[in-house]
Amino acid sequence: MSAGDSPDPGSRADRAASFELGAAQYASTRPSYPDAAVDWLLPTGARRVLDLAAGTGKLTERLVARGLDVVAVEPSDAMRERLAQTVPGAHALAGSAESVPLPDASVDAVLVAQAWHWFSPAAQPEIARVLRPGGRLGIVWNVRDNAVDWVGRFTEIIHRGDTLERSYREPVLDAGLFTAPEHRTVPWADRVATSSLRPLAASRSYFLTLPPERREELLGEIDDLVATHPALAGRDAVDLPYLAECWRADALPAAPGAP
């Protein structure tokens, strides 16, 4: 691709790579995760936890706050550098879901926040490898509650023209590696400045890979929504409702004779 070309907004590879450019926006606008969701995902007695595809550390900081020994693995240099600055209590490492730089059976839990949809099938055996016997895999997405009118309109704008499948979906786990996943939904709300809704939209991989003219067109619609919707107009801050969609499963014992 030449320097003047825009990435294909339908390309998964370009979309995943786009976070290298959007780390600052991601860190400043994306929500954290509710305590009730994190508590449900973690196994009882967990001490060492891997935050896999940790991004800028939104979940990592919640784990460190619990006094856990946290390793955060993230492939994007820009996002990992931001994580190391904002969550110095975690051990940040370069790596990916398909190549985790940790020894076998070295963590009690592997948590994946807002990233499972980027993983290839090779990630599951690698996750099982680093989990201790009976260790926990926990997966969570923050999903906007589109039943709220302005949130539904916001979501429609930021997905308009997006050809990739939406990220949130029930994870399909290898039955030879993990127990059947349990599911829980945790409703919560993030108090945000209305002025942050534009950069929140701009932090999405779809927007990061759009041609500048189209990106500005859609961001202009976000501005119009903020200026005119009765729930937003004239307000400095608003509750942005989310559903934290959580799944958890435990690693199965290795079969006799397995490597």
Rank of each mutant, 00 (worst) to 15 (best):
H229I: 12
R184S: 05
H183V: 03
G161N: 01
A227H: 07
P101Q: 08
A13M: 06
V186Q: 04
G176S: 09
E74D: 11
R62G: 15
T86Y: 00
L240F: 15
D77L: 14
A175F: 04
S205H: 00
G220E: 03
E126S: 01
Y242E: 05
D149W: 06
V192G: 07
E245S: 05
A258V: 10
D69P: 05
G176W: 07
V226D: 10
E61S: 12
A175N: 05
L52A: 13
L164I: 13
V112I: 14
A53Y: 06
A233G: 00
P256T: 09
R15H: 06
L218W: 04
W118I: 04
H117R: 08
D224N: 05
W247T: 03
A175L: 07
G161I: 06
A255Q: 15
C246N: 02
L219N: 09
D104V: 05
A90W: 06
R144Q: 14
E74A: 09
N142R: 01
V73T: 02
A53M: 09
D174E: 11
K58P: 02
D8N: 13
L21N: 05
T185C: 10
A258C: 10
W116Q: 08
S6K: 01
S167V: 11
A46N: 00
S28L: 13
R191L: 14
L21F: 01
G161F: 02
D174P: 07
R214A: 14
D51T: 05
P31F: 01
V186L: 08
E170W: 00
R129G: 05
M79Y: 00
G10M: 08
R30Q: 04
L225T: 11
G138Q: 01
A237M: 11
P199S: 03
A27G: 12
T56R: 08
A231K: 02
P7R: 09
E126R: 07
A54C: 05
T86W: 02
D69W: 04
A128C: 05
T29E: 13
A258W: 09
R160Q: 15
A201N: 13
D145L: 00
G22K: 02
F119M: 12
E98H: 03
G220H: 11
A189N: 10
V186W: 01
A46H: 07
M79W: 08
A255V: 15
A202G: 12
P43A: 01
G57Y: 07
V110A: 06
D224A: 15
R248E: 08
L177A: 14
S76I: 12
N146Y: 00
L102W: 07
P256S: 09
P259S: 14
